[in-house]
Design a protein around this nucleic acid. Structure first.
Length: 472
RNA sequence: UCCUCCGUAGCUCAAUGGUAGAGCGAGCGGCUGUUAACCGCUAGGUUGCUGGUUCGAGUCCAGCCGGGGGAGCCA
């Protein structure tokens, strides 16, 4: 009866106490090095941590000639053996095998897509089913998991409730971007109304339906009952945007707090980001060390500096003034700076990286460039919106205090030509026990990209969906 | 959607319009308590697709397909 397998992470965490112990490992071969001293070194990875384990396979193993000498990168094995102090330099302990069971060899090592060498990101996206076997993507996967847990721990520790807002929505009013249609209608033979339009009353939900572009409106409903809530789930945008910061399917974190204003919202955003990075620094130092060495040299230091610096709060109007001053002093911008237009990427980069040098929360934007639900300020021309800008990535969070006054909300809907009827349930929240409340959205992939130094969000999600690409 | 760059061996890349090469990976052999091991040998190609110019096209031209980067939109 074989003992249960030990994770390599657990073995390494308790290495000193395990010398002499019999263990069983399960994993995949990274490399094999043979020695004519009568043994082979087989590097085994099981994904539990960044490190792999050196397994020493003596030539007297029954299957040494027949199987061990044919192990190549990617083969799966079960190893039974003894933990011993290593006689080599690269590791303190190793496993001296008494038995190696080969579960699966690599069919054709010559064409195995993940050969032990450098591959381009573009190539690895084409083999997304195998790329988690690389150092980089294994590390990304563990960091992603760690950050997801940190998000939940942060909110749960503050008494937030996790709300599972719907993936399929029949709202006409989410309004955050192009939506993917959800339909069971026969595209070859669409039912038509008398006017010749598609008759969606025949569709599955009896009306038009789409994939959600944001859980915000739904989570507001639960906020105005449970006070502190958040959503964390997949979100879909059918925008034809081709950049390293956009995905058609991505995960978003959206907290919503009642009895709160924009300042509370900014504090919450700062607290969340710092908690996530602190947790990551604490728990995944092995993977971060790899990212710092091979991907982005400043990856650890900038996270440390992030958690130790206070975020600058800056009014949009003051930000414009600062940009105009910089322009007057000879700093050139490709796009003009003017009160009333949105900040361009280059403007955000200037504020964060050149002017302030640490994360900045820009607050109170002109109402004409922001959504209908954002709370009108007393000046009548700005709304209580905020963007959190971080050095190296730009906008990572967008949020606002919500308009809780029914008459002001209705005026905004009318101003933006949005039909009141479509927002009947959203308006009900203001009719029945309205309270000031606020929230924000954090793109999870952007968080991971920043934390790891990975340059493209397509490489921090297991199977990226982008325009023209949904393989796997 | 716009701008721009790129498609050559399993992968990363070379190749004035003139016989398609290297490194890594792979296979075989040698050497070694090795560690991105090392040394030698071998195999591996319809140069993204279609057409055009030319005595001759990986190279020049046109169209198409695929991908990267940047911009916009945003998270």
């Amino acid at each position: 009866m074989p003992s249960p397998a030990l994770r390599i992470a657990d073995l390494l965490a308790t290495a000193a106490d395990r010398v002499g112990e019999a263990v069983r490992l399960e994993g995949w071969v990274r490399t094999r090095r043979d020695s004519k001293a009568g043994l082979s070194f087989v590097q085994i990875s099981d994904g539990s941590c960044f490190a792999s384990m050196q397994v020493v396979a003596p030539s007297d193993l029954a299957n040494y000639e027949s199987e061990i000498l044919h192990l190549t990168s990617g083969a799966s094995v079960v190893v039974e053996g003894e933990v011993v102090e290593s006689r080599g330099k690269g590791q303190s302990i190793e496993v001296k095998a008494t038995r190696i069971e080969v579960l699966g060899l690599v069919e054709d090592p010559d064409t195995y897509p993940i050969s032990p060498k450098q591959h381009s990101w573009e190539y690895l996206r084409e083999v997304a089913h195998l790329r988690p076997r690389t150092n980089t993507f294994g590390a990304v996967g563990r960091v992603r998991n760690c950050l997801a847990m940190a998000v939940h721990e942060f909110f749960q520790g503050l008494g937030f409730q996790w709300i599972h807002t719907p993936i399929i929505t029949a709202n006409d009013c989410e309004g955050a971007g192009e939506m993917f249609r959800v339909s069971t209608l026969d595209l070859e033979n669409l039912p038509r109304t008398e006017e010749g339009k598609v008759d969606f009353s025949e569709d599955f939900f009896g009306r038009e339906a789409h994939l959600t572009v944001s859980g915000q409106l739904a989570v507001e409903c639960w906020c105005l009952a449970l006070s502190k809530v958040y959503t964390f789930g997949p979100t879909f945008r059918a925008e034809n945007s081709n950049t390293s910061r956009h995905l058609a399917e991505f995960w978003m974190i959206e907290p919503e707090i009642a009895f709160a204003d924009l300042a509370d919202d900014a504090d919450l955003a700062e607290g969340l980001l710092k908690h996530c990075f602190r947790t990551l620094l604490d728990r995944r130092s092995d993977d971060l060390a790899f990212f710092a060495e091979r991907i982005e040299p400043t990856c650890i230091t900038r996270l440390e500096s992030f958690v130790n610096s206070s975020f600058e709060r800056m009014d949009y109007t003051d930000a414009i003034a600062a940009l105009e001053k910089a322009a007057a002093n000879g700093r050139t911008f490709e796009f003009p700076v003017a009160w009333g237009s949105d900040l361009q990427s280059e403007h955000e980069r200037y504020l964060v990286e050149e002017l302030v040098g640490r994360p900045v929360v820009v607050m109170n934007y002109p109402k004409d460039i922001k959504a209908f639900y954002m709370r009108m300020n007393d000046d009548g021309r700005t709304v209580a919106a905020m963007d959190v800008l971080a050095p190296g990535i730009g906008e990572i969070i967008g949020g606002s205090q919500r308009e809780e006054r029914l008459d002001v909300l209705d005026a905004r809907l009318a101003e933006m030509n949005l039909p009141k009827e479509d927002y009947w349930w959203y308006r009900d929240l203001r009719r029945y026990g309205t309270v000031p409340h606020a929230g924000f959205g954090l793109g999870f992939e952007r968080l991971i990209a920043y934390a790891t130094g990975m340059g493209n969000v397509r490489d921090v999600i297991p199977f990226p969906r982008t325009p023209g690409s949904a393989e796997f």
